[in-house]
Write a protein that binds this DNA or RNA. Structure first.
Lengths: 361, 361
DNA sequence: AATCGCTACTAAATCGTTTTAGTAGGGATA
DNA sequence: TATCCCTACTAAAACGATTTAGTAGCGATT
């Protein structure tokens, strides 16, 4: 990647800015506005914030204030206000990384709720690095965020402020976990494969750092056992590396195929790895779903349009995000009166498409 | 989606929080720390910030201060500091939406640069809604962000602070555009298809709201004309709707196929729509690439693992993000001395995979 | 005639820093 | 001995809001 045409414009630096300032009006302070109106800042503050004390201010004074505020485009300085009222209307969000599809969907849900509550959020990606896992919460807390939403992120700190962890499984005081009903998810997935006749089912485990990895596998094993089949440890492979690319699923299934073990179905950790798995199978001359069924997880946008279209366990990621945000805002509003919900769980659904089929051998 | 097990924990609300506070130490202020040390806040501020004035402070006093600060876990209050020094170390980022893959990749690049500069960022998604396009910049400016990075977002305001627009094409004072060399991209794409023998090439235009839509098509037409072929308007379809799903590409190509026009190649606006296009073609019984070649754009993670693997024009999205951030930080550091770069451009590359092939009919 | 209450405000403190302007005390210099 | 400089600090203002505590003026009540 190269840069080209770094074209600096001349004479554009000073003038337009000054013009813009003069035109738009330099941010004016409450004090300046008060002087202009020959009133005290107190009065303006009361009126502009519609404080109870403003009830004694006559309407025409109020009108004068509002008019002047609009005219001079007065915007209260958020820093000053936040400092005074000890409230920032800001939360922190910690994600593993943004471009994995998963976090972005959750964030969409978070944002949808925050927006209507006039909250903004600061984001940080920890990239699974220990130093960032340590530093990011600090950084956010220093910035006076009121609470933290973590997505698929281990919590290593004792929270001094409300924390909601999406896909968190550790019980930590002060941390609310928003989780998928993994038992149900496993039932749906294994049930589906079982009903199609599959008995030798390979499982792609998630990476060690993923919060869902452990419970997901356990629940799958339980669901399989319930149907009288076991998940053969030799058919269990684990994703390696932290790339958000299908490559990790591809490699995992490659090594599985190399082992020579026989299987008719694959239950992947997520859609991304399912896509990689399919590539590996096809390269070996196996057809999906005729020879091997592949079951994804998450239902990302691409799942429906992959070739073959992915049968998958849908996680309501957007909703998990919005629930996380709602829960956090509630906890903030309640102070410490409402009690801290330990866990909120959401239900998966199965979306049957073309990557799974009845066993034919 | 339903909620279940909203399990509130009893008696957990008061105690652990108080404990945590007592344990971790309530955030202590500089003043309190100063009282404890029997020094003035000034002295502490000088020493802790390693200000020039601290040169007259003897080393053992400095040590006392640092030790106490560590012991009481002193963290300067960002609001207070920012208010005083008129600097927030925060920028605003505006994206269309996070889960389209594109924005997330750019954001990764942005974050990689900001992190090492000790900057954090506030994010807002405008979802192509006019009201949000208006409101988000206001909101961010109110929060005293030092600058704004917009991603594929039309700028409707006169910027009072530095703005960098990734994939922006409008010349606006104070806005630096980070853009792809679209001429080169079109050359690569059309050249590739042309060399494979394709003459009747369908083009999937982007949505109207996408900043790249117009120039992309123009450059494609130019590149085609240069080779003596024209892009038939009847072979030009436009993505409709703002879903980040392959569905929009699917619909577009469906309607193209319904028109009965003949073509051997498709140049898609992005990989997502290319994936939708392939689905539409396959549904019509056409093989990709044997009957129709499909060329994507962006090179998202899934492109390499789609079936067939997508030949695509790679945009260095991560780099575009990091360049945007670097440019913005430079502009912030320079004040208005350095001049405002109007445009920085980056080069695409073509990644040839399996979705394009030599024409066979 | 003193008190009360109401209206329509203002002064000053406060949030937690940084920064400007001093200053007390001591030794060296003229 | 007066002046100057240096060391090691401190007091107070400032950033821009909100909030607490008043207060001046006036009409109504006791």
């Amino acid at each position: 990647m190269q840069l080209s045409h770094a074209v600096p414009r001349k004479n554009v630096n000073q003038i337009p800015t000054l013009r813009a300032k003069a035109r738009k009006g330099d941010p004016i302070s409450l004090k300046e506005l008060a002087i202009h109106l020959e009133l005290s800042p107190t009065t303006l503050s009361w009126v502009l914030n519609d404080a109870p004390a403003a009830s004694s201010i006559p309407q025409d004074t109020k009108d004068r204030i509002h008019t002047a505020a609009r005219k001079f485009n007065y915007r209260p300085n958020y820093l000053a206000r936040s400092l005074r009222v000890q409230k920032t209307n800001t939360i922190g969000v910690i994600v593993p990384e943004l471009s994995d599809g998963y976090s972005a969907m959750v964030l969409n849900g978070v944002e949808s709720v925050l927006a209507s509550a006039e909250y903004l959020y600061l984001t940080g990606s920890h990239l699974h690095r220990a130093d960032l896992l340590e530093k990011l919460p600090q950084l956010l807390i220093e910035r006076q965020v009121e609470g933290i939403i973590a997505v698929d992120t281990p919590i290593h700190f004792e929270p001094m402020l409300p924390v909601v962890n999406v896909s968190g499984h550790d019980e930590i005081d002060g941390v609310t976990n928003v989780i998928l009903n993994h038992q149900h998810a496993a039932e749906l997935g294994i049930g589906h494969l079982f009903n199609l006749g599959h008995r030798r089912i390979a499982v792609i485990k998630g990476q060690e750092f993923s919060s869902d990895t452990k419970i997901r596998l356990e629940m799958i094993q339980t669901a399989a056992a319930k149907r009288g089949i076991a998940i053969d440890p030799k058919l269990t492979v684990q994703l390696a590396g932290d790339s958000p690319s299908p490559e990790v699923g591809y490699s995992a299934v490659k090594s599985l195929l190399a082992s020579g073990e026989d299987f008719t179905g694959v239950f992947a950790f997520n859609d991304i790895s399912a896509i990689g798995a399919i590539r590996a199978l096809i390269e070996m001359g196996l057809r999906v779903p005729e020879d091997v069924s592949v079951l994804g997880f998450d239902d990302i946008y691409a799942a429906a349009f992959h070739n073959p279209a992915l049968t998958t366990i849908r996680q309501p990621l957007f909703e998990m995000g919005s629930i996380a945000a709602k829960t956090l805002l509630e906890r903030l509003a309640n102070g410490f009166e409402g009690g801290v919900p330990q866990e909120v769980s959401v239900e998966p659904t199965i979306v049957v498409r073309q990557s799974t089929a009845r066993i034919s051998r």
